[in-house]
Amino acid sequence: MREILKHTPGRIFLIILFLSVVGMLFVPRYFTSKVLVFGWMTLPLAAGLIFIFVWLVAYLIYFFKYWPYR
C-alpha cells in the first residue's frame, strides 16, 4: 500500500475505493423500499453488486496499468 500512496493514480484508486465504502454505508437508509431490480433482486444485493463492480473496475485499471510492481 505504501507504493500505492506514492503516486497520483494510486491515490485516486484509494479515494475511489474509500468513496465506494462511504456510499455503501450511506445507502442502507433507502433499503426500506421494496423495489426489486429485474423483478427479483433486492436492494442490498443490487447495491453490493454495484460496489463490487466499482472495486473491480478500479482494481483492473490500477493494477494492470499503474501498479509499480506489476
Binding site: 475505493l17 465504502v21 455503501m24 442502507p28 433499503f31 433486492t42 436492494l43 442490498p44 444485493l45 447495491a47 453490493g48 460496489f51 463490487i52 472495486w55
Partner: peptide
C-alpha cells in the same frame, strides 16, 4: 431479510 449480505460485501472487500 436481505441486509445481512452486507457482511459478505465487507468480507469480499
Amino acid at each position: 431479510g436481505p441486509a445481512y449480505i452486507y457482511f459478505i460485501w465487507g468480507s469480499v472487500a
